[in-house]
Design a protein around this nucleic acid. Structure first.
Ligand code: MN
Ligand code: MN
Ligand code: ZN
Ligand code: ZN
Lengths: 139, 139
DNA sequence: TTTCCAATTCGGAATGACTACGATTTACTC
DNA sequence: GAGTAAATCGTAGTCATTCCGAATTGGAAA
């Protein structure tokens, strides 16, 4: 997903176009990795020193709910990234140093569904953590 | 894992046998599901009203580090359960109503390792969420 | 263009999980 | 039974997140 498509999505769902929303989405498009609300505030501190934490949290949550962003929880913190372009279901490798992700095609849920016929399955989480090639070289 | 094996493990690693530790481990053995620190405090409020949160958190963390407990993070909270008896690596279905778990044999990490040869893989998380047969019937 | 108002943001206080820490108590060794 | 390090207690602090009332603003309607 890119900035323009995200803004269209907002408009089509009746959200207003505000400087805060533009700045947050532009940042996430540019960074292309998982950022916490605090990361976002820091990154926008120069251009938008008055943006309140309420605004950051509220918008990140809204964007996540409407699938503009992908969200996970790492180290007790919510983290957000621009939703991948790829169609359909996928998971991520996440670099614990820089937050960058690599998309994974693997998903074992068909097997699991078959193994648990009497359970209601609502959701699942599959994430792989480590060091990306760039961070590995740099380290 | 059961209470007695857990106490042996504590002893062998030089930890003292205290009423707090016994109560926490007995509770987790009996419940056999994921509990938060708050859940533990509430459950022990009758028998051990003076047990401080420091004691609960410190011991749950210690037990988790020494693999007496399994730990996960759900809804922004750390949760703990007695480590399964099963040998070797596995994952869980977790009932979002009652916290009970079902062990899963499926793990897609061999495929992932093959797909990401230039990445350092340190860890992964695979969890399935939903409703267990008991809660389904009860609901 | 101006008016209008619900949506949005702001600033700051409240919440809740978790951690830190000095004082006190306790489990184990001798 | 005395000594000592470990463990616990009580409480205060931290940090991410949420809440709330007041002020501002985007964009539709006049
Ligand atoms: Mn993705
Ligand atoms: Mn297990
Ligand atoms: Zn990296
Ligand atoms: Zn259940």
């Amino acid at each position: 997903m890119n900035f323009d498509i995200a803004m269209e999505r907002l408009k089509s769902e009746g959200f207003k176009r505000t400087p805060s929303r533009e700045a947050i989405l532009r940042l996430l498009e540019r960074e292309d990795r998982y950022l916490s609300a605090g990361d976002v505030r820091k990154a926008l501190a120069d251009q938008h020193p008055k943006m309140s934490q309420d605004t950051v949290y509220r918008n990140l949550s809204s964007f996540s709910e409407m699938k503009i962003l992908e969200e996970t929880e790492l180290g007790g913190e919510r983290k957000f990234r621009m939703h991948c372009n790829r169609h359909g279901h996928h998971h991520h490798f996440i670099c614990m140093e820089c937050g960058r992700t690599e998309e994974l095609d693997v998903c074992p849920m068909e097997q699991v569904s078959r193994a648990l016929p009497s359970f209601v399955i609502d959701d699942h989480k599959f994430e792989v953590y480590g060091q990306c090639p760039d961070c590995r070289t740099a380290g």
